[in-house]
């Protein structure tokens, strides 16, 4: 029959790793959403003037994340900045998320018909009111599925931070395997963690999306 040396302690250890993964994802998405929304509006509103911004954001999408982690990690030591690898981890992931989120938000804003905005303005709403009460809610609805996919992508990509010495889910799995040598089983469990969290998030997302579409 099936037997394993995996102990309940190991499971707790894995859960701790999974928690680091979730923390990293949450912080990165916070950074990514705030800056992505800001930049997305800028990109949609001033397409020509914001070309330099688009160029910079595109660089972050066109270089492997693994290399971005390594570069920031060594750059901060070169300039003598005392930040933890965890900070490096969520900052790099956050900037990456912001670069992707910008495109998602831009798409959402551009999906709002110009005539609608003009109508809002002609009803006496200020530009800010139009942005906050008309454009943002509609753009958010359009952008939501993309944003959700982005969150799942960021969670999966957070596995790469193991490279700069952060002990997250994947790394804890490798650690445990050092002792019990059951790679197939241990990595299956780690995979299951990712799968379940991703799946749960996308289910919640689907529900939220349905509610958004209905009202």
């Amino acid at each position: 029959m099936f037997s394993t040396d995996l102990t309940s302690n190991d499971l707790i250890f894995l859960v701790q790793g999974a928690w680091v993964t979730i923390e990293l994802t949450a912080l990165a998405m916070l950074i990514g959403t705030v800056f992505g929304t800001l930049f997305g509006f800028v990109r949609a509103s001033f397409p020509t003037a914001s070309i330099p911004l688009a160029f910079v954001l595109d660089v972050f999408r066109s270089v492997p994340l693994l290399i971005q982690f390594v570069l920031l990690n060594s750059a901060k030591s070169i300039v003598g900045l005392k930040i933890s690898p965890f900070t490096v981890g969520y900052v790099v992931l956050g900037v990456y998320a912001a670069a992707l989120c910008t495109e998602i938000v831009r798409g959402g804003v551009l999906a709002v018909p110009k005539s609608l905005r003009l109508a809002a303005r002609s009803l006496g709403l200020t530009s800010l009111q139009d942005t906050l009460h008309i454009t943002l809610p509609i753009a958010a609805r359009v952008a939501f599925p993309g944003w959700l996919n982005l969150m799942l992508a960021v969670m999966k990509d957070s596995a790469l931070v193991t490279w700069i010495g952060i002990i997250e889910l994947l790394r804890t799995a490798q650690q445990i395997n050092t002792r019990i040598n059951e790679p197939l089983f241990v990595f299956f469990i780690a995979g299951l963690f990712y799968y379940v969290v991703s799946w749960a998030v996308s289910q919640l997302g689907n529900q939220a999306e349905r509610r958004l579409q209905n009202d």
């Binding site: 990690n73 060594s74 901060k76 030591s77 070169i78 003598g80 005392k82 933890s84 010495g165």
Partner: peptide
Amino acid sequence: IVETQFPDRIPALMSDR
């Protein structure tokens, strides 16, 4: 104790971890 992988030892020192 800061866990450090083999290839990461010298980078860890350089980055003051």
